[in-house]
Design a protein around this nucleic acid. Structure first.
Length: 230
DNA sequence: CCCTGATTCGC
DNA sequence: GCGAATCAGG
């Protein structure tokens, strides 16, 4: 990944908006926290209350004086709807993200976490084309009116015979094929390489020796069938 | 441990 | 210019 104007812009906006380097890195995708910090400095964005460095006086302690909070937490729209000013969310499909995949999970089960998103909320789109959600912006699961009776969901025909999420266990390869949300999204399902979450073949893709940079070869194939093409 | 940003330095 | 490694504080 390179620093395109667009990405630099996102970096600036988020950095100035008070997002942490980690958050920015994740939003941008394909870069590390360090990369973000390094770039921020090179851009002259420097400074910003560092937990390590002593800070200028002047500003009254932000911690002791929390801003008045509205009685009820305002429900945040699922899709970023930042007030007029700041940059719009980056809705564009990801462009060939390199490495970095990390665990894209956790997002569903997140507990009530302290909201720490001050300003504009920029989000990225995950490898599967889904919109990422920060832990702080969970929508309490709406409790829909219970249906009159529950009918067992029948698997779509496309998925017949495929390894679905529900079929996963410790012994079968969890390498995803296709894109989450699509009707035929499924998992490899081969017998795993013992001790690994993937079969032998997919382990070959997932784990690669860390070579000196100079000697690194091709961009590793991505899980999720690669970036979505629209 | 986790997190944070700052800095260094080989590439 | 880039970012991993490292440092140092919370």
């Amino acid at each position: 990944m390179s620093w395109t104007d667009e990405r630099i812009d996102t970096l600036k906006t988020m950095w100035e908006g008070g997002q942490t380097a980690s958050q920015i890195a994740e939003a941008l995708g394909g870069v590390s926290r360090n990369a973000v910090i390094g770039k921020a400095h090179r851009l002259g964005l420097q400074s910003r209350p560092s937990p390590v460095k002593p800070n200028e006086p002047a500003a009254p302690a932000p911690v002791a004086a929390p801003a008045p909070v509205p009685a009820a937490p305002e429900p945040e729209p699922l899709v970023a709807a930042p007030p007029p000013p700041p940059a719009p969310p980056r809705a564009a499909a990801p462009v060939i993200e390199e490495e970095d995949d990390e665990d894209e999970d956790d997002e569903v089960v997140a507990a009530p976490a302290p909201v720490r998103e001050p300003q504009p909320i920029l989000r990225s789109v995950g490898p599967g084309g889904f919109v990422r959600q920060s832990p702080g912006e969970q929508q309490p699961p709406a409790t829909p009116a219970p249906p009159r009776r529950l009918v067992p969901a029948k698997p779509s025909p496309e998925i017949a015979g495929k390894t679905t999420l529900l079929d996963l266990n410790d012994r079968i390869c969890k390498w995803p094929l296709g894109h989450p949300g699509e009707p035929d999204f499924h998992f490899c399902g081969e017998k795993v390489n013992p001790g690994f979450p993937y079969c032998v073949a997919h382990c070959g893709h997932a784990y690669q020796a860390q070579l000196p940079r100079r000697d690194r070869r091709p961009p590793p194939p991505l899980p999720f069938g690669g970036p979505r093409v629209r």
